[in-house]
């Protein structure tokens, strides 16, 4: 227990926690969207995220930036980030839709029980991770530093880096856009209808198959955005990075109340903060254990998460 570190580093820990938490929240939204509509833990979502990190890496590689390059100037860096955001989210979205079509749609047609879905999802996750593993020789791959490394500003004991600011701002922007999309647009109404009652929605003329594909696409897009920022923060990626991220993001989704979009945001940020403070308190080796203990304790006292489960029920 190291309370001094916690108190002295409190502002910095908060910024790191929020930046990390926004990444969790973005991935958690993918879990929550799919769960809200299908009542299914999309186990393969973590690999969708992992493919996003590699898409970003390859994009930068094609544009001439690998882990040995010098930091580009700000304009180039922003361009690189922007391009990789587009490419990675499209790539992740595509992977997510392929997973849906191959591993879930045939099961839906057979009215399989939930357990069967979950196992098929585990299968899909293994295929994706191991294919990437075989393709990259299971090696860790370095990612270039893009955004400037010096602090954006620093006052007293509080420093903020450009990457942290960019992460939080972009994540929040994307989440507001999603919130607007789900609550205001026609497609969003379709999603909410299917989440409330899939069969009735289908009778009312909602194309259920298309709504489900759309939900997977949205989750994939968000995972791609998360993957870009995760790669820049981590400085490397590997075929198995998805697993831990998936576990954390799912925990975040459950913390906030799975199926609830705003819950995913709250859960993600909370998990990021708790981890950041916990790492200062107990040592960074224990970060993952802390995340799980928090999840376990919360589930015991509030099994539906902080904000409760709802996608269809007006709140989202």
């Amino acid at each position: 227990m190291n309370f001094d570190d916690l108190i002295q580093g409190f502002p910095d820990l908060t910024t790191t926690g929020l930046a990390q938490g926004s990444i969790y929240a973005l991935v958690a939204l993918g879990y929550t969207l799919v769960y809200g509509v299908l009542r299914l833990i999309n186990f393969a979502h973590s690999e969708v995220f992992m493919f996003g990190t590699f898409a970003a890496l390859w994009t930068w590689g094609l544009m001439g930036y690998d882990s040995n390059s010098a930091r580009p100037d700000l304009g180039t860096a922003l361009l690189l980030v922007l391009v990789s955001l587009v490419v990675a989210s499209l790539f992740s979205g595509g992977v997510a839709m392929v997973v849906e079509a191959v591993a879930y749609r045939p099961l839906r047609k057979r009215n399989a029980p939930p357990l069967v879905f979950l196992i098929s999802a585990i299968g899909a996750s293994f295929v994706l991770a191991e294919l990437m593993g075989a393709f990259t020789e299971r090696r860790q791959q370095g990612i270039p530093g893009l955004l400037p490394g010096e602090p954006l500003f620093s006052a007293g004991g509080w420093t903020v880096y450009p990457l942290q600011l960019a992460t939080v701002v972009v994540a929040l922007a994307v989440m507001f856009a999603l919130d607007w999309f789900v609550s205001k647009t026609r497609f969003g109404r379709g999603i909410r209808a299917v989440a409330q009652d899939a069969d009735t929605a289908a009778l009312m003329g909602v194309n259920k198959g298309r709504v489900i594909a759309l939900v997977f696409l949205l989750g994939g897009l968000l995972a791609g955005v998360a993957a870009v920022f995760y790669s820049m923060k981590q400085g490397n990626t590997r075929f198995n990075v998805g697993f831990l991220m998936g576990l954390k993001a799912f925990s975040a989704a459950v913390l906030g109340g799975i199926g609830n979009l705003r819950g995913a945001l709250v859960g993600g940020l909370l998990l990021g903060l708790v981890e950041s403070y916990g790492a200062a308190l107990f040592g960074s080796n224990w970060t993952n254990v802390i995340a799980f203990v928090v999840l376990l304790v919360l589930l015991m006292f509030r099994p539906t998460g902080l904000l409760g489960e709802s996608l269809g029920r007006a709140r989202a």
Partner: peptide, 21 residues
């Protein structure tokens, strides 16, 4: 690396999906 031991999880993953379907 295409040795069966390296690819076995790909194969099992695919097998899981196929068996579940």
């Amino acid at each position: 690396d295409v040795s069966p031991t390296s690819l076995r999880f790909v194969i099992f993953g695919a097998l899981l999906i196929v068996v579940m379907i």
